[in-house]
Design a protein around this nucleic acid. Structure first.
Length: 626
RNA sequence: GGCUCCGUAGCUUAAUGGAUAGAGCAUCUGACUACGGAUCAGAAGGUUAGAGGUUCGAGUCCUCUCGGAGUCACCA
């Protein structure tokens, strides 16, 4: 029989080959093989062929040498699979050449099909939680990595067929925001973002910073007191320096000795009592922060479907604790505190409710998880949170599993490495935190500077020029961050992040701009692409593009399944690189024949589409010109 | 100290257990009177931290060692 593959929508050539190889092994050697385990790769450049089959796994079954088995399977494929034009064997690898007619029909299914690579809606819902800032400070570089990862994941999951609900939990209550509030109240003299001409979230952050400075001054002074000396004498470890001792002691001091600390706690109590003046102040300052965040989110091109506020969720979870006790998943200690014991899962015991009946961090996460599932009913819940919280999420998910929550298997922590500068970790105290707004402004400045040096955007309106510059600048920044595997700690070099050449976003955008130029000419001269099907003798540069395009749907699926946008980023770079090579080596409009011209135009159109689609999955837009 | 993660060229990084470890930056050298040179080609740069093991085959899996990070709060 023949495995001709007429439709690309349900089967591609790779799975055809896998199935045929499995069948060949069964028929030739009498042992069944799983088609999905047949290894089919694209053939490396130095060998003849499009795809290669690894034969080693079958030599035991065949009881023949790798080369003999490869030749037999190759012959079987040539006889039974119409797309296989020829084969050759090198050291146990079976290299297959695919017929041009296959590539012709493939190209026809791609060109003009905007949804190529994406899966139709599968009727399932998934929630992705990302960003989740505190409201006492503006967003910084760490948030940017989180936001880009989260956003890209939502796009990937959509492309894989899910309905996606984008959420963030806004940490709008607690000690941190109270510090900003108190600071403004004490020293603010009624100033506002408007009166000072400062972006409103930065304005609030400045009061937080001032509070920390005042607090530090108070602490330094306190360390000279008799009480402090006595504490140091009695509580320091042997040979411990005063500096190290007081560094460790800071929290305790703030809670027990600091007058500012006492004032902050008083404010927190007033907030919890819903004291009207405090609530008004809280709302005013959070309002400033949200206005600032909105602008930053807008600049980053992201949005949310549903917002959760910690002020509404921080008391959740008490009922789940009762539930856990009833189910015997939790237990109560003598002092009344409630615990979960995960020692058999390699974790420790963990408090889920204090002796005084108040919540801890994990309590609200338990409650929020249950509430959200009741509200959203998703299949999966993805939490985009930095890897310093790996342990917390292991404990959280394991606990929910033991509680028998129905969504427990769908929970996923998308953990990512911290962003560091070439000089090391960002530190608030040393002022090395890279501010999100500053960074965005900087990449736009560089893009503008580079563009004016090239001076190629004449005859374009000012608005269009601005928009294209924005896309290039943001493209550089976003690609730089997202090309790195999420799990890996990232070294962020500000200078390299705005590079516009080499393995960068603009490099990919540029290949799209070139294609855009071709498409405009097609429209202008009314060029017919139909002759493409009469083209024969596909060149290696063209074949490389076809092979890459062919891989796109699998890349999207894999990236979605692994929550890994870097796969798509690297794919786009690879495709753009192959297109630049093609562009350099082969003439499109000056091709020898109208068939070749139409084929190359059709191929270019497909590459343009896929690049736009792939970069779109990363949240990167394509400029029309640059 | 326990647990987890990471270690690839000077730097930033890629590689479902498959062929000679692939790119970019930086360095050096070339390529448009052809569709846009933010491009292309070439040179140089590697004991994949180290040592064992499993396998026809290991950067990838297992064990140990070294180096780095995170975490082990009735903080969030």
């Amino acid at each position: 029989m023949t495995y001709f593959c007429g439709s690309f929508f349900n089967m591609n050539i790779v799975s055809t080959l896998q199935g045929a190889v499995a069948k060949a092994v069964t028929e030739l050697y009498g042992e069944a093989t799983d088609a999905s385990k047949v290894l089919v790769n694209t053939t490396p450049p130095d060998f003849t062929g499009d795809y290669s089959v690894v034969i080693f796994p079958f030599v035991k079954i065949a009881k023949k040498s790798p080369d003999v088995a490869a030749a037999e399977i190759g012959q079987y494929l040539a006889d039974h699979v119409s797309e296989v034009k020829a084969y050759n064997v090198v050291k146990g690898f079976l290299n297959l050449e695919i017929s041009d007619s296959y590539w012709q029909s493939f190209l026809q299914t791609v060109a003009g099909n905007e949804s190529f690579g994406t899966t139709p809606n599968n009727g399932k819902k998934v929630m992705v939680e990302f960003s989740s800032p505190n409201t006492n400070k503006p967003l910084h570089l760490g948030h940017i990595r989180n936001i880009l990862l989260g956003w890209s994941c939502t796009r990937l999951l959509e492309a894989a067929g899910y309905e996606v609900i984008k959420t963030q939990i806004i940490n709008d209550r607690g000690v941190a925001i109270c510090k900003s509030m108190l600071s403004w109240l004490k020293w603010g003299e009624g100033k506002t973002p408007e009166s000072e001409g400062i972006k409103s979230d930065h304005f609030v952050g400045d009061w937080y910073v001032l509070f920390e400075q005042k607090s530090k001054a108070e602490y330094d002074a306190w360390q000279q007191t008799e009480v402090a000396h006595q504490l140091f004498e009695s509580k320091s470890k042997p040979n411990q320096e005063a500096k190290d001792f007081f560094k460790d002691y800071k929290n305790k001091w703030f809670n027990e000795f600091s007058t500012l600390g006492a004032e902050v706690r008083e404010m927190l109590l007033k907030w919890e009592a819903h004291e009207p003046e405090t609530m008004a102040l809280w709302q005013k300052m959070n309002g400033w922060v949200y206005a600032g965040f909105d602008q930053t989110y807008h600049n980053l091109g992201v949005s949310f479907d549903k917002l959760y506020y910690e002020s509404n969720t921080y008391l959740l979870g008490k009922d789940i604790v009762e539930d856990g006790l009833a189910k015997g998943v939790f237990f109560k200690k003598e002092d009344g505190s409630v615990w979960v014991d995960l020692t058999d899962a390699g974790h420790d015991q963990k408090v889920v409710l204090r002796a005084d009946g108040t919540s801890v961090y994990i309590t609200q996460d338990l409650g929020t998880a249950r509430m959200r599932h009741a509200e959203l009913g998703c299949e999966k819940y993805v939490y985009v949170v930095a890897d310093e919280q790996n342990y917390h999420f292991q404990v959280l998910f394991e606990t929910l599993k033991r509680l028998g929550e129905p969504y427990a298997e769908g929970l996923h922590h998308l953990s990512y490495g911290l962003v560091e500068l070439p000089t090391g970790r960002m530190k608030t105290r040393e002022g090395t935190v890279v501010d999100a707004d500053d960074l965005v402004a900087e990449v736009l400045r560089i893009a503008t500077e580079q563009s004016s040096e090239r001076g190629e955007s004449e005859g374009v309106s000012q608005e269009e020029k601005q928009e294209n510059l924005r896309r290039v600048g943001m493209g550089a920044l976003k690609f730089f961050i997202i090309k790195v595997h999420p799990k890996k700690k990232m070294i962020f070099n500000p200078e390299e992040s705005v590079d516009l050449q080499g393995q960068t976003g603009p490099y990919i955008q540029y290949s799209h701009v070139r294609i855009n130029g071709l498409m405009q000419r097609i429209a202008r001269e009314n060029i017919d692409l139909a002759p493409a099907s009469g083209y024969s003798g596909i060149q290696t540069q063209e074949k490389d593009l076809l092979l890459a395009l062919h891989e796109y749907p699998d890349v999207v699926q894999k990236a979605a399944a692994e929550y890994d946008p870097s796969l798509v980023a690297n794919f786009c770079y690879d495709l753009a690189k192959k297109y630049h090579k093609f562009w350099h080596d082969l003439s499109v409009f000056n091709a020898d024949t109208t068939e070749a011209r139409a084929f190359r135009l059709s191929l270019s159109k497909s590459v343009g589409q896929v690049l736009k689609s792939g970069m779109g999955l990363l949240g990167i837009e394509m400029p029309e010109r640059m």
